[in-house]
């Protein structure tokens, strides 16, 4: 009897923890894109900007980005030759096609088959979601481009872009 009570107490405790952490309510980890787990990638591709989650772009886009690192959006991001294939493999294995996350699928399916965008901010789904904010921040010196996700999405480095985590620099609150 005592044993049974204890088990019930434990079950209740675990259920309480799960509900509290949002796991049960959301049904899945509370992120939009799989977080970056590769330390080399985080270091190398996070040196000049946020280390973008591989699930943000399809495989063909990452291949194009990685082929042109010497001419990388007006910058030079060349890698030591030994690191190049390692990082490409990580990107390909975790690209939007392979990532089992809702937002990855939305990004992926919004791109026409004939297109290979190299900017996340050129993906149609992204453009749609950011049309309004793009107008609002035009001319804002602090936001140089929409590629600076972390300026508005406070948990961008964890792959989480939920609406209640948005703080747009210079704007009082997003949901006004």
């Amino acid at each position: 009897m005592v044993m049974k009570n204890r088990i019930w107490a434990m079950v209740a405790g675990i259920a309480w923890l799960l509900v509290n952490s949002g796991y049960v309510l959301a049904g899945a980890p509370n992120t939009d894109f799989a977080a970056v787990t590769n330390i080399k990638y985080a270091k190398e591709c996070g040196a000049c900007h946020l280390a973008y989650q591989p699930g943000l772009l399809p495989e063909r886009s990452w291949r194009k980005v990685m082929e042109n690192l010497h001419d990388h959006f007006g910058d030079n991001a060349e890698l030591p030759t030994a690191d190049q294939p390692v990082l490409l493999e990580y990107l390909v294995n975790n690209s939007a096609e392979r990532a089992n996350y809702k937002r990855s699928a939305q990004m992926l399916h919004s791109i026409r088959k004939v297109d290979t965008p190299v900017r996340i901010s050129q993906v149609p789904y992204f453009i749609r979601e950011h049309r309004e904010v793009a107008n609002r921040v035009r001319g804002n010196e602090k936001i140089k481009s929409l590629g600076q996700c972390e300026l508005c999405h406070q948990k961008a480095n964890e792959g989480s872009y939920a609406e209640n985590e948005i703080r747009v620099l210079g704007a009082e609150s997003w949901n006004d």
Binding site: A47, C48, H49, F73, G74, K142, K144
Partner: peptide, 8 residues
């Protein structure tokens, strides 16, 4: 310093 394009 600050990266000229990305602001990092």
């Amino acid at each position: 310093g600050k990266h000229e394009k990305t602001g990092k």
